[in-house]
C-alpha cells in the first residue's frame, strides 16, 4: 500500500516537472513547487513500507529511473549534420603546458587529499559524539571534501590561491593532530 503510494508520489512529481517543462496544461511555478513537494514526500511513503534505509534508497533509485524514462520518452531525432572532413594528425604535444598540469595534479591529488583528510579528521574530532560516530563521519566525508577541494583547485583562475589555502588546510590540522 505505502510502497505504491511512494511510486505514485514520485511519478506524479516527476510527471509534474515534465508537464511544466513541456508547458502542457499543468505547468507554472506552483506545479513545479508541488511536484518537488510530491517528490520530497515519496521517501516517507517508501519508508513506511520498507523502513527508512530501504525506503530512502528506493525513492532515490525510483526518481533517477523515472526521470531517465521520461528523457527517453522525450527523445528527438534530428537530421545528422555531416561532419567536416578532418584528416588524422600527429598527436600534438605541448611541453609548455606540462608544468601547469603537473602542478594541478599535485594540488588535486596529494595536497587536496592531505588537506581534506587532516582537516576533516580534526573537525570531526571536535564533535561531541561517540568516537565511532566521529570516525565514521570523517571516513565518509573525506571523499566529498577532497572532491570539492579538487574542483576548486581546477576552477580557480589563480591556481596559487587554492594551492596556498590547501597547504594551510593540510599543515595546520596535521600539526594540531600529530604534535
Amino acid at each position: 500500500m505505502y510502497a505504491w503510494l511512494g511510486v505514485v508520489l514520485g511519478a506524479s512529481g516527476v510527471l509534474g516537472l515534465y508537464s511544466s517543462w513541456r508547458r502542457l496544461a499543468l505547468s507554472g511555478g506552483r506545479v513545479v513547487a508541488l511536484s518537488w513537494l510530491l517528490i520530497a514526500a515519496s521517501p516517507w511513503a517508501w519508508s513506511r513500507a520498507w523502513g527508512a534505509e530501504f525506503g530512502i534508497s528506493f525513492a532515490l533509485i525510483a526518481l533517477s529511473l523515472l526521470g531517465g524514462l521520461l528523457v527517453l520518452f522525450n527523445f528527438e531525432v534530428r537530421e545528422r549534420k555531416q561532419s567536416r572532413p578532418a584528416s588524422t594528425q600527429a598527436v600534438a604535444v605541448d611541453p609548455r603546458s606540462w608544468g601547469r598540469h603537473l602542478f594541478l595534479f599535485f594540488v588535486v591529488v596529494p595536497l587536496a587529499g592531505a588537506a581534506s583528510i587532516f582537516s576533516t579528521v580534526l573537525l570531526c574530532g571536535l564533535l561531541p559524539w561517540h568516537p565511532t560516530d566521529k570516525m565514521v563521519l570523517a571516513v565518509l566525508l573525506v571523499p566529498v571534501v577532497w572532491g570539492l577541494a579538487a574542483y576548486w583547485a581546477c576552477a580557480d583562475t589563480r591556481p596559487a590561491r587554492p594551492a596556498a589555502a590547501l597547504l594551510c588546510a593540510a599543515t595546520l590540522p596535521a600539526l594540531m593532530l600529530l604534535l
Binding site: 515534465y18 517543462w21 528523457v71 522525450n74 527523445f75 528527438e76 534530428r78 545528422r80 549534420k81
Partner: peptide
C-alpha cells in the same frame, strides 16, 4: 531537464 536531441550535431 528532459531534452535528448539525438543525431544532429
Amino acid at each position: 531537464a528532459f531534452s535528448l536531441r539525438l543525431r544532429g550535431s
